[in-house]
Design a protein around this nucleic acid. Structure first.
Lengths: 129, 129
DNA sequence: CTTGACCTTCCCCTGTACTGGAAGGTCCAG
DNA sequence: CTGGACCTTCCAGTACAGGGGAAGGTCAAG
């Protein structure tokens, strides 16, 4: 299977597949005599795994850690648990920060609902921010 | 006031001040005869405005739009309201996405709490993701 | 035999907000 | 007069996940 067809089957682009290979996420496929990449159909599972990892909010570097452990012949379960835990903590923190930011902006916005341009001095640029 | 002293007074670094100037956020200050930047103390208000804009989640490009309006002699109130509204919508959306992602990951993590490495096939790399 | 679709490698570009460092000029104290 | 602290400009790089496009090779159909 050549890269274009494989990319479409895997729901991505040829460019991205070459990039994943370069990043160590996909094993380099065989080449035809003319140098074209020749993918086995079951390599799609690996691309799907990368996509699921991304959907879980993992970076490509983290996904690579997992596939490296698997390719070294081990089950990556423990590492995956650690990654998911860390990601969960990050996300909780991001949500907390965004929530605080939302409240801050909502307050600024409320102030700005009563336009009093004359009280804006050029010094402070804008009295609402 | 030379850049180092001014930077400290404004709570930032000389490098950052040159960057802000290059980005059009700060007006180019006068220069001494030897070419050193010479800041008037009241320029600190402009730096503070940039910092407040950042605290409100605005990008430097957006802050620049505001100061450009102000420097053109207009009150930026209406534009500021639009920016704050847009930012608020973005943040609400980000929070919703992160909340959904958190639930997804929490579920994956729960699955991974019961380790069954033997059911992980090398094909799927990891059955938890 | 040629056309067009596909493939290869290569390098640069995107956006964000800076940071690091090199090469050289300036200023002040000792 | 010399050393060190400060300043100048310019170039390059950071993290992230690719995208754009050039120059050239390959393959199948008409």
């Amino acid at each position: 299977m050549r890269i274009g067809e494989f990319a479409e089957a895997a729901g991505t682009t040829a460019k991205t597949l070459r990039f994943y290979e370069e990043q160590g996420l996909l094993p380099p496929p065989d080449r035809t005599s003319s140098g074209y990449r020749d993918y086995p159909p079951d390599a799609i599972a690996r691309v799907d795994f990368v996509h699921r990892g991304q959907a879980a909010g993992l970076t490509l570097a983290q996904i690579r850690q997992i596939v490296d452990i698997r390719d070294a012949g081990h089950a990556p379960c423990a590492h995956v648990r650690d990654l998911l835990d860390a990601r969960l903590r990050d996300i909780e923190q991001q949500i907390a920060q965004l929530t605080a930011l939302r409240d801050t902006i909502a307050n600024l916005r409320d102030d700005a609902a009563h336009p009093e341009p004359e009280t804006c001095s050029a010094d402070q640029v804008c009295r609402y921010v």
